[in-house]
Design a protein around this nucleic acid. Structure first.
Lengths: 155, 155
DNA sequence: TCGTGTGGTTGCATCATAAAACCAAATGCC
DNA sequence: GGCATTTGGTTTTATGATGCAACCACACGA
């Protein structure tokens, strides 16, 4: 099979993340979900995407434990899609993407919104990588290391 | 036309980022580049991807100003692909993806590496969103606001 | 009951991707 | 210089993914 390569079995955590949300629409769906969208039609009209693709993506996100279906909320018999904790955990990824665009986009004037601190209305600070003890780290200050030692007691 | 939708003209910065690096391979190429890979063959053998796709992705990344071609480095007449500042600016995105996987992956035992502080060898701290004044912000503490002044473009 | 809105699924046409074959320039070896 | 090999791709072809439109089932309202 020629199958679009899946990174499901890959050992790199970046690849594993991309396997779940590395397509064109998933992160945008999650973004809208973080803003409170829940219903199929809401996603469809807000994102302007084809309904079959939306359906496939929603199911994929549910399968990955990022969204879950909830029976209702406004009393109607319809279904809703709400973020799980794992889904809400993608928030830093979205912030990182947004900040990257804000900093490096070739046409920043086309960016319509800024992410602000709700209390003060001021833009949020850039994400920083810090050590356990709080030291600010540059990319060069970090490295990847093999995992400690997975205890595999059960076979 | 049916064309795979491009987010190039979208006003959402998340969508704009995804337009540049939202496909299956781009972020992995960047990850390897951050680790020092430069040559076509290095990327190809490390990532195990088809050469035509790699070629297309490299050109796309160059077009987006994320990579640039450099004439040599070891004296040979071949070409290299090196990250621009814009390319190195994706680092927080990769860290966010990695940390999301580390925290929520269904099979964390399959993750082979951890990102550590080079000096101490200890895992880096989770990325945090903070306000200008340093207050720690949760997703609920943030909101998007229309950009300060300039004109708005396509919605 | 009929009509309508919501929430999808099904069929195509087209695009992107993957694997392998092919190719040209650069390099290594003699 | 001559020849095989490596490097760095492009071309070819098959298949999966995407996009659009049509269709359908169910809920809801009149």
């Amino acid at each position: 099979m020629v199958k679009r390569t899946s990174f499901e079995g890959d050992s790199c955590p970046v690849a594993r993340s991309l396997d779940a949300l590395g397509d064109w629409w998933s992160l945008l769906i999650i973004r809208e979900a973080l803003f409170g969208l829940r219903r199929f039609g809401e996603f469809q009209s807000k994102l302007g995407m084809a309904k079959n693709i939306l359906s496939a993506r929603l199911h994929s996100l549910v399968d990955h434990g990022i969204l879950e279906t909830a029976p209702a909320s406004d009393g109607s018999a319809y279904q809703e899609y709400v973020l799980t904790p794992k889904g809400r955990g993608t928030f830093p990824i979205l912030v990182a993407l947004r900040q990257w665009s804000e900093e490096f986009d070739d046409h920043p004037e086309q960016i319509a919104t800024v992410l602000v601190d709700r209390e003060k209305g001021r833009p949020v600070k850039k994400l920083e990588m810090r050590a356990e003890d709080g030291r600010l780290l540059s990319p060069a200050d970090a490295m990847v290391k093999p995992r400690p030692a997975p205890r595999r007691r059960s076979a």
